[in-house]
């Protein structure tokens, strides 16, 4: 039996009176790759941010790698250690060099010796192909480079799950490919991933499962072949016709 990495059961969330997430049920198995799409404001970000508790849910259960997310701070920190997150605007730490950005969490959270953390950081920088920038500051890098650094920073914690929230939508077209290449490589190595993205080419190559969200609900959840060829719901059809 494959292990379940993420389980969301009957999750509901409100911002005041506004019902953002409506009865979300989702299971992600180890090594599975999900791509989430949907119109703006449909709750995609909110859903994946609930998985590492950047947002709180009010109803239902979220279990990540066997740990249920509750108010317990220890649980939250344990989950966050195993879940990497990549943001639309990179969110690198501008006062630290690239190398320090990467070494920070391993040294402070995993209590790794500095030398080991540095080796690991350089290894992952090599993998995203920017080892030569290690001593620069984030402000001195291009957007694409910054996003690759952000991915390397996440990987340095050796997470079991990676969440991507529109990682390429703040990038110029010529930089999108370099970031998607890194993500594709990661997917091929068997990382469990949830990506919110509108890069449908990427989705077709890597996704095991496509999710379409609208107005806080998961409207459709099916393999890419089926999702793109004959989507079940009208809303999905409409959305796909608009973006393809």
């Amino acid at each position: 039996m494959e292990t379940k990495m993420i389980e969301m059961k009957g999750v509901n969330k409100w911002y005041g009176d506004f019902h953002v997430l409506k009865d979300i049920n989702l299971t992600v198995k180890k090594g599975e790759r999900l791509v989430v799409c949907g119109p703006s404001g449909s709750g995609k970000s909110t859903m994946i941010r609930c998985i590492n508790r950047l947002e709180e849910h009010q109803e239902g259960q979220i279990i990540v790698d066997g740990i249920e997310l509750t108010d317990d701070l220890n649980h939250i920190e344990n989950v966050r250690r195993e879940v990497g997150m990549i943001f639309q605007h990179f969110n690198l730490f501008p006062h630290l060099t690239i190398l320090e950005n990467l070494m920070l969490a391993p040294t402070w959270v995993r209590k790794m010796p500095r030398r080991e953390a540095e080796e690991k950081a350089l290894y992952y920088l090599e993998r995203v192909k920017i080892a030569d920038q290690a001593l620069k500051f984030p402000g001195q890098l291009s957007g694409g480079q910054q996003q690759r650094v952000a991915i390397a920073r996440g990987l340095c914690m050796e997470p079991k799950i990676m969440l991507f929230d529109e990682p390429t939508s703040a990038l110029d077209p010529e930089m999108i490919k370099e970031v998607l290449d890194v993500m594709t490589e990661l997917a091929e190595e068997g990382m469990t991933m949830i990506c919110v993205t509108h890069e449908m080419g990427f989705a077709k190559t890597v996704a095991d499962c496509m999710i379409f969200m609208d107005q806080g609900q998961i409207v459709e959840c099916s393999p890419p072949a089926e999702f793109f060829e004959n989507p079940k719901s009208e809303r999905t059809q409409l959305f796909l016709s608009q973006i393809l």
Partner: peptide, 24 residues
């Protein structure tokens, strides 16, 4: 985003403040 990035890496409140937010 700075707090969120730090917290998503597993840093707690005090470490986030000490290492990320206050220096900036």
């Amino acid at each position: 985003g700075q707090t969120e990035a730090a917290e998503s890496l597993g840093l707690g409140y005090w470490r986030t403040m000490q290492l990320i937010i206050l220096p900036q």
